[in-house]
Amino acid sequence: MPSKPKTANTWYLLIFLVLFSLVPVLKTTNYQMLLAAHVLVWGLFAVSFNMLFGVTGMLSFGQALYYGMGAYGAGLCVKYLGQAWFFPGMALGIVLAAVTAWLLGHLIIRVSGVFFTMLTLAFGQLGWQVMFKWYSFTGGDDGVQNIIPPGLFSNKVIYYYLVLALVGASIWFLGRLSASPMGLILRCVRQNPERVRFLGRRVRRNQQRIYIISSLFTALAGGLMSGVDYSIHTDMFYWTTSGHVILMSILGGIGQFFGPLVGAAVIVTIEDVVGAFTEYWSLIIGTVMLVMVLGLPRGLMGEISQLWTRLPGRQQALTTREEGN
């Protein structure tokens, strides 16, 4: 996997950046830009989640905790200290998320498999309950409104480009990380932790590192979202948010670096389009999901790259794929 997809991923990233940078130019309504911003933020969330799940094999059901921390870092700073504190607040949220991830990591990473999943869920829900109940400080489930980025960035188009730049840079960084020697070790951790130990590498330390990195970028996504929607609320901490990002990743294909991003784009768009024309969205989205799970076992991107490798003259690449899956 490392050598070939590296170049392919660079191309994907470029195409992705160009496409999304055209949105404010080609859009016919502001709404399309809003939707694109949602895709970007959810995409970052999903890609950083997939660093944990798809790459390292740690299925976290509590990433909403960090997403919420990023959002509330920015939101609460704006609420109590004023608009100018938007970016410092976002930074604060990210730092807090990283520290929390470091602390919780010690407790959580001792267990693996389904127990890890459940423990992340438990801590995520605890975080949600605290935010929910600490009404006087967080506003409880009423959320926080009127979060507008300061200065130039109160302009939607400029803020959009800021989101695009930050998301692009983050995804580029995560892509590099995934293709780096550390990424390789993480993949080994997923496939065979025992062997990683034999090779003299520490499993837990690497898991801890990626847990912190993933949480950090998740918090960034949360912070960015608060400026897109102008309002935040405790649902961001709730387990359904974690579940949402899992769905996006699997649907897009967790074996591919860009899979989760595609999954995010597909889910955000489907939810919007289907929601707009029928109240029976849940039946339709459910059916689409069902068909995709049964028909596309590798996720959307996985199937696409499978088709790509099946093209004549690219037979050799198949061997790399097998190993990647």
Binding site: T29, N30, Y31, L34, L35, H38, G143, M225, D229, Y230, S231, H233, D235, M236, E271, D272, G275, A276
Partner: peptide
């Protein structure tokens, strides 16, 4: 709330 905000913005702009 987050979904509703999105829809409201669509109502207004589209």
């Amino acid at each position: 709330p987050d979904y509703s905000v999105t829809v409201a913005k669509r109502y207004i702009s589209d």
